[in-house]
């Protein structure tokens, strides 16, 4: 029997994984830093994609879950010394609960499209204000993850390679999960809900439940990334985790890479994060803001020429090649 690993479609991911595993051997610390960002954003975007891409419910406030993950584990670590390895699951469960609540609140009352998006923005913004004013979690000053020396048990590493491998494992698991789900009833139900909710409902799909489940799963995964975010940057404040910045970035990678595809968000992050980081490195000092201009230009070009993202473009080229090579065969078969 053919396993998935021997199929041609897995050659590219398998090759990419091999390169990714070996990368820290020859990459500089700076290159590794960019690689960690790529993995982190690929992971967060993959988590967003479950709700935004597959189920088609475009959350513009996913920083809500990122922040819950980051704050929960960091708070527990700084106040009672609980290792982030445990705190991350508490944060994820909490985020899942909030994901259920937000999902229930919105979908129960039939909020769709821009209305759902607006509500998610509003809730995330409300969290910024709220956390700004809660002093025992640092208020506007935020929280610092105290450096206690190289300690894998506390998710703290001297070299970037430690963080890099954690992010890599998280991404691989998330991608595998989404790939697996996309071939289950749940995955097909998500797409059906996105494509035509009435038709899905008429064919026995509990659309409300499916959307809420997607919201919970997406929130849970995003919060795990939030803990990693806090551990890696060692500092969080309301604006940089609950703010609109991370929310927008997370979904940009999915849109540019390809909404509702397994690999889209990862590919999007792989292309955009280095552009953003390098542009900031080159232009950030001389022309403040110029890197954002360059970044914006790339975004506009992608939207114009690849409306279905990089994966969409890849698929259409592959289809065309396939059709091109099989056309003579089709002609031979009698109509």
């Amino acid at each position: 029997m053919k396993t998935v690993w021997t199929q041609k479609g897995f050659l590219i991911p398998a090759g990419a994984l091999l390169i990714a595993i070996l990368l820290p051997i020859f990459a500089s610390e700076y290159a590794l830093h960019i690689a960690v960002l790529v993995l982190l954003y690929a992971y967060l975007s993959t988590a967003w994609n479950v709700l935004g891409g597959y189920a088609g419910q475009h959350s513009l406030g996913h920083s809500l879950f990122l922040g819950i993950g980051a704050y929960t584990s960091t708070f527990l670590f700084t106040k009672i010394g609980l290792t982030p390895w445990v705190g991350m699951w508490i944060g994820a469960l909490l985020a899942g609960l909030v994901g259920w609540f937000v999902g229930y609140l919105c979908f129960r009352y039939g909020l769709k499209g821009p209305y759902f998006a607006l509500v998610t923005i509003a809730i995330a913004e409300a969290m910024v204000s709220l956390t700004n004013n809660i002093n025992f979690i640092g208020g506007a000053m935020g929280l610092e993850v105290k450096w206690l020396g190289n300690s894998p048990l506390l998710m703290q590493f001297e070299s970037k390679a430690g963080y890099y491998y954690i992010a890599l494992v998280m991404l691989v698991i998330a991608l595998w999960l989404v790939y697996w789900l996309s071939r289950q009833r749940f995955g097909y139900h998500l797409i059906a809900v996105r494509e035509n909710e009435d038709a899905a409902e008429a064919l026995g799909v509990d659309t409300l439940r499916v959307k809420i489940q997607a919201s919970i799963l997406s929130a849970f995964l995003t919060a795990l990334g939030g803990t990693f975010f806090a551990q890696y940057f060692t500092y969080i404040n309301p604006r940089n985790v609950f703010g609109e910045g991370p929310s927008i970035q997370i979904l940009l990678f999915a849109i540019v890479g390809g909404l509702g595809t397994v690999w889209g968000p990862a590919v999007g992050a792989l292309v955009l994060v280095p552009i953003a980081e390098l542009a900031r490195g080159w232009l950030g000092g001389s022309f403040a803001g110029a890197h954002l201009l360059l970044y914006g230009t790339v975004m506009v070009l992608v939207m114009l020429f690849m409306p279905k993202g990089i994966i969409g473009l890849y698929e259409s080229i592959r289809q065309r090649l396939k059709r091109g090579s099989s056309a003579p065969e089709e002609e031979r078969t009698p109509a």
Partner: peptide, 22 residues
């Protein structure tokens, strides 16, 4: 439905599978 309601971005097989999953 009187006005047909397909899932446009799914294949014909996947469209039908949604029904079959019941």
């Amino acid at each position: 439905f009187q006005v047909v309601q397909p899932f446009p971005d799914m294949t014909v097989l996947e469209n039908t599978m949604i029904g079959a999953y019941v």
